[in-house]
């Protein structure tokens, strides 16, 4: 289980608990985090679950695989600190992770 803090597009901060083994995207969608569309439900095919990771966390996350990397490259609002939240599985090690949701996924 990890407590993860999302900063929604309007600046609202919301902390939610997500169980181990779920993806961060799943936790966000179930808790109605605004701005995580996740149209493909985690199939790494829509790139509408993108989040920004603060510098102090970025290197602590598991590395991107090649398909996440190439999906991200073509995201409209991508930044060097972007990740696809459906590709991040929750573990205890992510407790306290802070994520920023982009203004739009389109």
């Amino acid at each position: 289980m990890a407590k993860i803090v999302f900063e929604e597009p309007d600046g609202t901060k919301r902390a939610i608990d997500i169980a181990n083994g779920q993806s961060i995207m799943e936790g966000a969608v179930r808790n109605g985090i605004v701005g995580i569309d996740a149209d493909c439900g985690g199939a790494c095919s829509c790139a509408t679950c993108m989040v920004y990771v603060p510098d102090d966390w970025f290197d602590r996350l598991p590395a991107k695989d090649s398909s996440e990397q190439s999906m991200l490259e073509f995201c409209p609002h991508v930044q060097p600190n972007s990740r696809l939240s459906c590709q991040l599985q929750v573990t205890d090690a992510l407790d306290g992770l802070r994520l920023k949701v982009p203004q739009s996924q389109q």
Partner: peptide
């Protein structure tokens, strides 16, 4: 081929 898919969409 994710790049082909994503770029083609645009």
């Amino acid at each position: 081929r994710a790049p082909e898919f994503m770029m083609s969409k645009q």
